[in-house]
Amino acid sequence: MQLTNKAKLVDRKPMSIAEKIYLPAIFKGMGITFSHIFKKKVTIQYPEQTRSFSPVFRGLHILNRDEEGRENCTACGLCAVACPAEAITMDAAERLPGEEHLYREEKYAAKYEINMLRCIFCGLCEEACPKDAIYLTETFAPANYSRQSFIYGKDNLVIPHPTENPEAFTKAKGLIDERKAKANQQTA
């Protein structure tokens, strides 16, 4: 029964003389390969050039701060619950008097770790976060020699402080804003 006309019958005719001496086919092939010498090369010279990421690219995570440099994360654990790979662990702690300049709310994450080897970069943590604290960026984990080094702690995740390193902070903020804008575009 013929359902489509895509089926192709295999041609098992004996080869003609032109096919038997191979030469016409070889010359045709050589013409094709020669023309490719002058074609535009597709190589991207990696360290100097980089391929631009897609607007929905999901890379390494960062933990956000507000404009005064206080950490947004309140260690609610929604990201850890949302994580299908169970890559996120955290320890919550209570903010002590005198630490108001460090943490935005009364509860904060004393320890916050993401195992980048377990993470599948699905972005569900970003969606789950009610406090605008965790974002995925357009970078990926660099190669390393030990598994331990792929467990990213707060020192790797939290973005730079606005007063200590204002340039890096505005850059990180800019990336987050861009990401938010793109996300809004997607939903709109």
Binding site: T33, F34, H36, I37, K40, K41, V42, Q45
Partner: peptide, 10 residues
């Protein structure tokens, strides 16, 4: 080099 050029590489 020739292999690369023919295969659209550098």
């Amino acid at each position: 080099k020739v292999a690369a050029w023919i295969q659209d590489r550098l």
